[in-house]
């Protein structure tokens, strides 16, 4: 995605994907599951290549799975950019300190995830490469290519998925949201009422508990 500004992001994600897709943590996690599934398709195509390549079946299966994975991921990515309001997708200079810190945390976790993936993959490949008795295992080039592609895809996708998984429900917007135009709270589609705590001006204390 190119250089999106926060204003463009708000405008672009007002209509599609529908907020009901990511309004609640449960729905966001379903999205993340679908996104993880799209990365999984790449790994499946590597396995298909391992067993069937070189063959037309392997080639077309790989094309079909990769194509499906790309389409699914684009949709999931779009929804998660909207859900995270730019923590995923916006250039760093457009993020405020909370968003920036959130992104750093997500990237650190995703980095750990990629490390684990690489270690597991390395152990798997080593166990395949070590000859058992007289038999040496041959890995088709297509499978290695798809494996590398799978690792790269996982590395790229993981931060987005982590962001969607970890994100807590955003606070309700102001009731008089000027850019909404529909008279409803933006985040209300999950049935929560709008209105910030203490917003009514009734003098109630705000005891925002914050763990740093």
């Amino acid at each position: 995605m190119g250089e999106l500004t926060p204003g463009q992001l708000e405008a672009r994600y007002r209509d599609w994907p529908p907020r009901s897709w990511y309004a609640t943590r449960g729905r966001r996690r379903i999205l993340v599951g679908v996104g993880a599934g799209s990365a999984g398709l790449i790994w499946v195509s590597a396995i298909v290549c391992y067993y069937l390549a070189p063959s037309l079946t392997a080639m077309w299966t790989t094309f079909a799975l990769t194509g499906a994975a790309s389409v699914i991921y684009v949709v999931v990515y779009s929804a998660l950019v909207g859900a995270t309001r730019g923590v995923v997708g916006l250039a760093e200079r457009h993020l405020d300190e909370r968003q920036s810190r959130e992104r750093q945390k997500i990237q650190a976790n995703a980095h750990r995830g990629t490390t684990v993936t690489l270690v597991v993959l390395g152990v798997l490949l080593l166990s395949l490469a070590v000859p058992r008795g007289e038999t040496a295992v041959q890995i088709p080039a297509a499978a290695i290519v798809m494996l590398v592609f799978g690792v790269i895809a996982t590395h790229v996708i993981l931060p987005t998925l982590m962001a969607g998984w970890q994100m807590s429900d955003p606070p309700p917007d102001d009731e008089d949201d000027p850019d909404d135009g529909d008279g409803r709270d933006d985040e209300d589609q999950d049935g929560r009422s709008g209105g910030a705590p203490g917003r009514s001006g009734d003098g109630q204390p705000i005891d925002g508990k914050t763990a740093t």
Binding site: P6, R85, G86, L95, D96, E97, R98, Q99, S168, P170, P171, P172, D173, D174, A196, P197, G198, I206, D207, G208, K209, T210, A211, T212
Partner: peptide, 15 residues
């Protein structure tokens, strides 16, 4: 800052 950041501050979910 982003308007949601104000909400997170008020809810005590961000220092």
């Amino acid at each position: 800052v982003h308007y949601q950041t104000i909400g997170y501050l008020e809810r005590g979910q961000y220092s």
